[in-house]
Design a protein around this nucleic acid. Structure first.
Lengths: 243, 243
DNA sequence: CGGCTTCTTGATCAAGGTCAACCTTTGTGG
DNA sequence: CCACAAAGGTTGACCTTGATCAAGAAGCCG
């Protein structure tokens, strides 16, 4: 179902920078389509050379890399409002794969006209750079996660971060939310084995930090959990570019 | 020693995008100083609010985060030409620390005037975004490294990547180069313990992949090493923004 | 310049953490 | 009702860690 950018519900949330002047018209003009995928569909393959950029409109997806022995590292969970394949207009190639977790809907942007942003919309360019730097910081903390935290801390961090990202987008309220990740997703996200996920989920329950089961997460003691997982709230809620 | 941007030797290398038109004059005009630090000096502290951006002119440095138990995760090795604290003009705060490894020299850029890039130099903005996306890809591979490769593979990857980054900057030739990292640096970079570094260095020697000792690295069998460490050459050599 | 301290390397070892493989149970959709 | 996927748990084998130590190098100070 095609959504006109003017009625885009994502813009209502405080997370995203409001579009000013004719920015909205520009964004409308480069949106060329909106497409749907079922769950577990390949949205994007490594090294594909398609000249398209997407914005995730609804649903969950993952961005990942594979090692030739079959192992997979999930680089990030993509949530509504996240840009996909921004590399394609600028470097001509996307070096990761994207797969949907739930059914998803994507806004399709024309990559060739995308570059006009730099010429004609300096404030949008600046917001884009700020968004990329914000993502860099998230990548940094994930690096800390994988390099220096224990499996249970990593899992706690993952749950807390997802909760906050969803809450900021106005998609959930309260401490309970739907978490459509399998053990394998979680394992590939935090760099441990599937069996370790079982161990760590039990530990989260034992410590009464959170209860994650049946696709539902319930945060029981946010404070203890955040302290134990060295979780710090995400910075800069209101500068994110939504294109 | 102050270097005029017009004579900057870094620009000679093919890694960096040539400045066009009055871009060079602009870059010259926002360079306000050049400062030197000794080895192991704190260049930047987490959450400092100083409004400065730096370009590393010479020497090696690291960007890192600390966990409150004292553990450190090094996010990246900074080499000549790399931007430091780009976050400060855009988000007002830098969320990592920077320390020199060797003595370093830094070009100091005025962060408040830095933002003029977006208004007046669209091609420079675009190059900046391309550079950030390139760095994002490096961060992605480092995530794969920490999440899905064995210690010896990680170490091999580190050596190969540093070699390539240095070679692209015209700082080294051949397979032998100076590597001023201690065991602790390497451990904090690839997310293992110091003792593991000893084990993995021996393994690199045993397999005749590389010989790393006394601050010198010597790559003996690049091909076997690259295959074993799942190393892929870095993409996009010539779009990097040097400001 | 010599002597002192501190840091780094490189090794060893036991303890603990993590993994791959396997199995059973549960739930889902055809 | 069956086939399949995922959850959840167990095991032994293996890997990694943290602690410790000695030797050497580097840096500092009087």
């Amino acid at each position: 179902m095609y959504v006109d950018c003017r009625n885009c519900p994502l813009r209502q949330t405080s997370l995203f920078r409001p579009l000013e002047g004719d920015e909205l018209e520009f964004v409308r003009s480069i949106k060329s389509d909106q497409i749907e995928y079922s769950a577990r569909a390949d949205v994007l393959r490594t090294d594909s050379e398609q000249q398209l950029v997407f914005t995730l409109f609804s649903g969950w997806a993952i961005r990942y890399l594979r090692v030739d022995n079959g192992a997979r590292q999930i680089l990030d969970v993509l949530l509504p409002g996240d840009l996909i394949a921004l590399q394609s207009p600028l470097t001509g190639r996307v070096r990761h794969s994207v797969q949907s977790i739930t059914p998803v809907s994507l806004c399709v942007l024309d990559a060739t006209r995308f570059k006009a942003i730099f010429d004609d919309y300096p404030e949008l360019s600046e917001a884009l750079v700020a968004t990329l730097l914000f993502e860099e910081h998230r990548a940094d903390t994930r690096l800390l996660l994988l390099g220096r935290l224990r499996p249970t801390q990593r899992l706690a961090y993952l749950v807390l971060e997802l909760h906050e990202r969803l809450a900021r987008r106005g998609l959930i309220e309260g401490d309970r939310f739907s978490l459509p990740l399998t053990y394998e997703h979680m394992a590939d996200l935090i760099g441990v084995s599937r069996s370790q996920i079982g161990v760590s989920l039990s530990e989260l329950r034992e410590r009464r930090w959170a209860d994650v089961a049946n696709g539902q997460a319930n945060i029981l003691d946010r404070k203890a959990m955040a302290t134990g997982a060295r979780y710090n709230a995400l910075p800069d809620p209101s500068v994110r570019a939504l294109i």
